[in-house]
Design a protein around this nucleic acid. Structure first.
Lengths: 220, 220
DNA sequence: GTCTATACAGGGATAGAC
DNA sequence: GTCTATCCCTGTATAGAC
């Protein structure tokens, strides 16, 4: 028997959101059909509508989950590259390696990246509070995590960053946005050498601005 | 059948492309309907199909026109700000003013900006050669124009840019992409003070990297 | 011969009825 | 879980008007 509102079968719900992630990612919001999502979830369309009021609600739910998933992946990357850096000399190399891996992650972000692109495409039709929630779970969370690490490094004199938030923003601009732009946010492939070149140029620029000792040079 | 340019009434064709620019900009490709475009152009739907074989052809035509129009606007901005700069001291201020105006132009790009967003949203469904043509008429043309000015300045010692193309790319990353990101490529409003702050920070960073004398500092 | 106006075939879509 | 009412869209077809 079917329970009332909140208590539906969680495994069905998960099957639906996972299927919806794939379908929305492949087709975008407008082209995706609820039929296709139900079929991909191996669930009847009625079940989809039992769990989610309409297509829009399902999409926004999936988008929030996807943002959180991407943030988690990037956080793991950041932890692996940036959290064991105690000696000054290795900071630059750690940042360079992290930047390359982050750019590559965008190009391999698959269905989650595709959902993020769909959000951006539909941004004018998304309620403000939902968009804020998406930003908070995704891009803003990533920036905060990077800024927190920069703040620690700055206190230890490993980088020059009076404003860690600004430094994190610059790092992303210089080492990530170029690849994002070139690949249309991960939609199109970019040759590996080109990714490496763009990211290496960006890392060089970042280090000239914020590397240990940059403050001294800037004061000249 | 196939729309051949010259034979039909050019004023109708213009009315159709202008209407299509507005409708595709408002609705995106998928949501826009040929009926709405015909109505907005005050033209019968049959006439639309007489001029353009199908919806996709109309969209791609409009996208190329829009890219060219945006490039023209930005080129005028660049010429106004950057082409009368002979004294060394004014280069930095000219760049700063241009950067702010360019960022503001994105936020006021209206229907042309909206079409550019639609292209980005549909990028996986666009034929490679058409996408190349769009890039060449739009973003790439802007980068080339900026790089050409940087090359002249570099020869005169007004900026430090061994590779003018790279410098142009960096200038755009530092002074433009931040606002593009924040506003979802012009879709959402951004407070004026925030635009000015983002652009000023970016201009500072660019000047530290590429201002006259930066090469000397980098050699330290 | 290009345009307007309208109608319509064919395919999908959403969302709800059974 | 299936079935279906209803709507909308693309693209074509059929009228007549300038």
């Amino acid at each position: 028997m079917i329970a009332r509102d909140g208590a539906r079968r969680p495994e069905k719900r998960r099957a639906i959101t996972e299927a919806a992630t794939r379908v929305f990612g492949r087709e975008g919001f407008a082209r995706a059909s609820m039929d296709a999502i139900a079929a991909e979830a191996a669930v009847s369309k009625r079940t989809v509508y039992n769990h989610f009021a309409d297509k829009e609600t399902l999409f926004l739910t999936v988008a929030l989950q996807s943002a959180a998933e991407l943030t988690l992946r990037l956080e793991r990357l950041a932890a692996a590259h940036l959290d064991e850096t105690d000696e000054g000399g290795s900071v630059r190399e750690a940042l360079a390696a992290f930047a390359v891996e982050r750019a590559r992650a965008l190009l391999r972000s698959g269905e989650h990246g595709a959902v993020a692109r769909a959000i951006r495409a539909e941004v004018v039709n998304i309620p403000g509070d939902v968009l804020d929630a998406w930003l908070d779970a995704g891009p803003d969370a990533e920036r905060r995590a990077l800024a927190a690490r920069f703040a620690v490094w700055a206190r230890r004199g490993l980088i020059a960053a009076d404003d860690p938030e600004l430094a994190a923003e610059r790092f992303t601009l210089l080492t990530y946005q170029g690849v994002a732009e070139r690949s249309f946010r991960g939609a199109l492939a970019v040759p590996g050498e080109e990714v490496e070149r763009i990211v290496a140029d960006g890392t060089d620029a970042f280090w000239r601005l914020h590397g240990a000792g940059a403050a001294v040079v800037a004061a000249l």
